[in-house]
Write a protein that binds this DNA or RNA. Structure first.
Lengths: 273, 273
DNA sequence: CCTATTCTTTTCAATATATGAAAAGTACTT
DNA sequence: AAGTACTTTTCATATATTGAAAAGAATAGG
């Protein structure tokens, strides 16, 4: 799973223009993101990289500030450096700032967790969140990636993507996570058509057991769908009768955000919720 | 500035255990974080890396999902991948979740921008923020790095670090940003002693013109200073008479956070503000 | 407290890989 | 439509990366 793409490529095509060392370093970074703390040997086994090689990579990541050693010796862990670098990219998403007040208002009104997400490859990345006041919460976090094909927040975007983008999307597999996961291209296309017709996307435990969600697309001034807004909750609270109200609130918020996006500038003086 | 540390090392020591290609790739990532969109040639000039080499690096970063090409061809930009990877590290900081309600309460009470920061190398990284309602705001963002020696949020942590950590800290230079920046070791040590005596740190335009701040340390259950909490505002609003009130509010919030950190678990049922 | 075991770090020679010059191919500009 | 600037490919060379093996630390076990 953490193998560099070159090796993972089933067809042994020459995989042109690929710098193996760099890819290996990034794999190490990603592996460290998953484990809290590791020692060299464990990590070396996990990644299938020899000790000395990993030692050099970790030393380099350390010198560049991405990794540090916990305590005196032994275990390695990530610093916040990767997050800092990435934060510069997030900062450029006007969407986030414009949507913020409406995300908060929607959370207050619905009393459920609100997520704002954008499409990135085969997944949706949560770029903002306001949690529910209920004591029973779904475990999600800002920066989390959800598979687009089985999350409401993903389907609400996919439903409005161009044929070309969808073609590229379907190059990725559609892994099955639960019995209700839609993992066939045909079925997903039908689901997306349904989503377009209704104007909102649903997820009934398609990704994680016990978790449901509704989502609507957010259009930018040019009319393209640029993000999506969702309400996520435990199945227990996802009553059939309540959905219409959730959708209404979502649509109101999404429209307000679209409107505020018009100017496209950060300090927009637009009306607040 | 974006040169890999190997080359930047003034003393031409052999710089042991260093993987140049990986470091170059990370440099590219960081360069892309700074520019929104670049074409290959510009980036190649900026980094002093030849075209074909950069081409390979960008191709690799692309295959690994860290970079993508805008539009059809031409310009490169960062994806959210680095941010996603880093978000896993941030998520492990219990501090952030525990502090959140108090950060919000403090923002409401003070009506100024509240920042929560942790020390990372020679800087402080802002891990959470709630902005002021005032129309005149200081430009800051979550994920931002501030130089520790000339930011209140940094000095409030430095003041309580061990001699060993401080020694390591002083290996970095203390760049001067404004006429009031403290850039000598002796002077900074005096300032830190003063900070300890008072119990709070100040910054009068030491980093950025027109920006002032007050900050207090946050101690974890073991008594170590693990983070700091600041109020940041334009000099115009930083009235001498108001500081005592800001400090009182900051200390109250910091104490509450320290208390709530006791359990050290995420879903702490502790009292809310 | 000493020995055994496991993990980290260093060394080193073989080899695979990255490198930049130059050329070919594209995409803009005027 | 010709010119200019940028991107991509090719390729021979030099270099950096590689893992085996060994030395050195640290930790655990008796």
């Amino acid at each position: 799973m953490a193998l560099s793409r070159k090796l993972a490529a089933a067809d042994d095509a020459p995989a042109p223009y690929f710098t193996a060392t760099l890819a290996k370093g990034l794999d190490v970074l990603e592996a460290l993101a998953e484990v809290e703390d590791v020692n060299l040997t464990d990590l070396s086994r996990r990644l299938g990289v020899s000790g000395p090689t990993l030692f050099r990579i970790l030393a380099t990541l350390g010198q560049c500030g991405y990794v540090q050693k916990a305590a005196k010796t032994s275990r390695y862990r990530l610093t916040l450096k990767a997050w800092e670098v990435g934060a510069r990219a997030v900062r450029r998403l006007t969407m986030r700032d414009v949507a913020r007040p409406w995300v908060e208002a929607l959370a207050k009104e619905s009393r459920e967790a609100v997520h704002l997400g954008v499409l990135q490859g085969s997944g949706v990345v949560i770029i903002d969140k306001v949690d529910t006041p209920h004591p029973v919460k779904v475990d999600t976090y800002v920066g989390q990636r959800a598979p687009a094909h089985c999350a409401a927040i993903g389907k609400a975007i996919l439903a409005y993507e161009s044929a070309a983008t969808l073609d590229a999307f379907f190059d990725h597999a559609l892994p099955r996570f639960t019995p209700t996961t839609i993992s066939g291209r045909r079925q997903l296309e039908r689901e997306l058509a349904l989503t377009r017709d209704r104007g909102y996307a649903l997820n009934h435990e398609e990704w994680r057991q016990g978790v449901c969600a509704v989502a609507v697309p957010i259009r930018c001034h040019s009319g393209e769908v640029a993000a999506s807004l969702s309400l996520t909750m435990p199945t227990e609270r996802f009553a059939k009768e309540a959905i219409a109200q959730f959708v209404a609130a979502l649509l109101r918020a999404a429209q307000a955000i679209s409107r505020d996006l018009g100017g496209e500038r950060r300090e927009s003086g637009a009306s607040r919720p």
